[in-house]
Design a protein around this nucleic acid. Structure first.
Length: 239
DNA sequence: AAGTGGTCCAACCGCTCCCAC
DNA sequence: AGTGGGAGCGGTTGGACCACT
């Protein structure tokens, strides 16, 4: 059977989005949400495929997207999660608020893969330089850790964290669940907790998401690593 | 200054999954 | 239970940008 095209291709625009198109899409979603991606471009007045709109929104226009360089902690989290989850970028992205699967996939192929498996591929001078630039920028931006103790926790490996006191991260593990039993799809409660959202709210409003204060970052990453551990345990149980 | 090669990242493609009917 | 449509996911590509020669 021939698969139907995702949309009527004739006359639809492809390639980079213009600021005007971005504005139209953002305005429309702000007003109406994105109930049906396929119908959205027509309703919004965009000459784009619904798929393209969804991608543009999820990877670029979403208000909760965190732009800018990945921190060392984020990179370490990606490497740890990739070791556990493999190329399941969406599952990895679910543990990194504000980061998209596309972005994580890109950064992995660009240089984290090499960092994780240094024997496979030598670092090129250019990638070394780029990394140095990132490290420099990061060291200028990043505040000093509250104490040497806390910084050691943040940079600890995933496996090291499993031995830490459960209470320190205040993780309500019994509340974690996975929708449809699909590994890597987090229950909304994960976001209530991870995004510092008031859990008395009736729904998660990601547009109001703000990155945790630096002082709370440790708890956040601790939680992320723990959730990843839960994912692994769940996978083993299922197998 | 021009040419070349490497890197980065936005966007597309095609496949799979999920769900309604 | 089977089918079709929509959404989501991962792989891949193309072009802009930058550094080096």
């Amino acid at each position: 059977m021939v698969r139907a095209p995702c949309c009527e291709k004739v006359g639809l625009k492809k390639g980079p989005w213009s600021p005007e198109e971005d504005q139209i899409l953002v305005d429309y979603i702000k007003r109406n949400g994105h109930g049906n991606w396929r119908a959205l471009p027509k309703l919004a007045g965009l000459l784009r495929c619904g798929k393209s709109c969804r991608l543009r929104w999820t990877n670029y226009l979403r208000p909760d997207i965190k732009r800018g360089n990945f921190t060392k902690e984020e990179e370490d989290a990606i490497i740890s999660l990739h070791a556990k989850l493999g190329n399941r970028w969406s599952a990895i992205a679910a543990s990194l608020p504000g980061r998209t699967d596309n972005e994580i996939k890109n950064i992995w192929h660009t240089y984290l893969k090499k960092r994780a498996n240094p024997e496979e591929e030598e670092e090129t001078p250019a990638s070394k330089k780029k990394k140095q630039q990132r490290d420099d920028a990061e060291s200028k931006l990043k505040p000093e850790p509250v104490s040497s103790d806390s910084s050691s926790v943040v940079s600890a490996s995933y496996s090291d964290l499993s031995s830490l006191d459960n209470d320190s991260g205040n993780v309500a593990r019994e509340e974690m669940s996975f929708s449809s039993g699909k590994i890597g799809t987090f229950d909304e409660r994960f976001w209530f907790e991870s995004l510092w959202v008031d859990d008395s709210a009736e729904s998660v409003d990601l547009t109001s998401f703000e990155a945790p204060p630096a002082a709370e970052e440790k708890g956040f990453w601790l939680k992320v690593f723990r959730e990843a551990e839960d994912l692994e345990n769940l996978t083993q149980e299922r197998d």
